[in-house]
Design a protein around this nucleic acid. Structure first.
Lengths: 229, 229
DNA sequence: TCAAAAGTGTTCACCGTACACCCATGG
DNA sequence: CCATGGGTGTACGGTGAACACTTTTGA
């Protein structure tokens, strides 16, 4: 009794990742087709099991890297799902994580080899187990985070246009935003650098590129500033 | 392989509860003196282990009931803590829960028999393991919840005065609030019932008692209203 | 020259905040 | 009659939302 809690039950711990990306107009999630039973062939979140010698954050990163090759991205623990029969094979808890990535920056790596695929939130297939519930939860968290912290930029290329940023927020909140009000608000924050370059791909006139100024943001935060959108 | 994930590691899962109460002027948490090793005699959150046949919410309620006799209170899952060496005895994950109770309504039950004790947030003892981190996390969540949902009432008696409610919010946010502004804001919400009775214990004049009107609140929510303080 | 997207300011309503005096009562 | 806490309203500045026209340029 002194050196173990030996009477207690142990359980399997899964980690499932909701990976958000943004592409033009749509908020998307990355899913994989399960290649093992049960539910083989159905769509599912990226998942795996926690190992003895790692913590949850580490497991989430490892699983993501293993299934997509992606490293160094924004990740955050979401919630733990524990219904007794959530996995029909065996009692398994799952800790959900959510992650934000810039689709454009990673496209090549995950094509084919992992049978992972991007789906718009609005027309994703039904997922196995309680994964749909996890996604709903993740969307709520995403809305909260992007309202209160400058994490939305994780979903965009380093250099982006105002219009892209606006469309991102429109996709996250599922509603149109007035162009002028949006620009005013963003500029008032004073945390973007306006670059001299233009992106010419979306219009004849071209539109200025911006970059998130993390140094300025950190400085402002240390002076009491808080991001709100 | 078809009927088990047999290769995978299993772990012990603890559930620890941060229980908030409010008493006059102070926000408090309920702690127990550990009566087993390791760290016997030190102060700790209420905790226990998840059993095979229950989910996390159930475990949290069971543990709370077992250690304090209390049932039917507001509880919510907070976060999962998973550092490898967080418990020196054995690899253990802990899912933290936070709970809100009305101290006055439960005082008798938990005196002595459980060696549980209330501590003001500001002068609580150092806790074992990573429990202090859990408490910090819980305070953040408490601030968020009480700003956006009418859960603060869980910490007060059914009937309470405006002043008590104000002191509660002052304790949660750690700052003074203007009396007139507070009353205006609360009344504007339109979710309290002003009772004809007065509480005579705090002054000679006496102060009116109020009650949270859950029906009116639910109705307003269904019409698009959202609580903000 | 025209179509398509980019860029840009002002007005107004509402909300949050600052602020001070009278009331009721028990002692 | 006085000390203590209870109760109440207004004015102002700032923020969020509504709203329309001109510019650029490739086709």
């Amino acid at each position: 009794m002194l050196n173990s809690y030996s009477e207690e039950d142990k359980v399997l711990l899964a980690v499932d990742c909701i990976i958000f990306g943004f592409d033009q107009d749509d908020l998307k999630i990355l899913l994989i087709k399960r290649d093992f039973e049960p539910e083989k062939g159905k769509w599912s979140l990226m998942g795996g099991f926690l190992k003895k010698d790692e913590n949850l954050d580490h497991a989430a990163s490892r699983i993501l890297k293993h299934l997509t090759g992606i490293t160094d991205i924004y990740m955050e623990q979401l919630y733990s799902f524990s219904e007794i029969d959530r996995d029909p094979v065996e009692r398994t808890l799952s800790v959900a994580y959510f992650a934000l990535i810039n689709i454009a920056g990673h496209n090549e790596k995950l094509s084919e080899q992992f049978s992972a695929q991007w789906f718009s939130i609005s027309d994703a297939p039904k997922l196995i187990f309680d994964h749909d519930k996890m996604v709903q939860h993740a969307i709520r968290r995403l809305r909260y985070r992007t309202s209160n912290e400058p994490v939305g930029f994780e979903l965009l290329p380093k250099k982006f246009t105002m219009r892209q940023l606006q469309k991102l927020y429109e996709a996250i909140f599922g509603k149109k935003i007035d162009k002028r009000n949006f620009v005013n608000k963003i500029n008032a924050l004073g945390i973007l650098i306006k670059l001299p370059e233009k992106d010419m791909s979306s219009s004849k006139k071209g539109s200025y590129l911006f970059q998130f100024d993390k140094l300025k943001y950190d400085k402002k935060v240390s002076e009491g500033f808080s991001f709100k959108l």
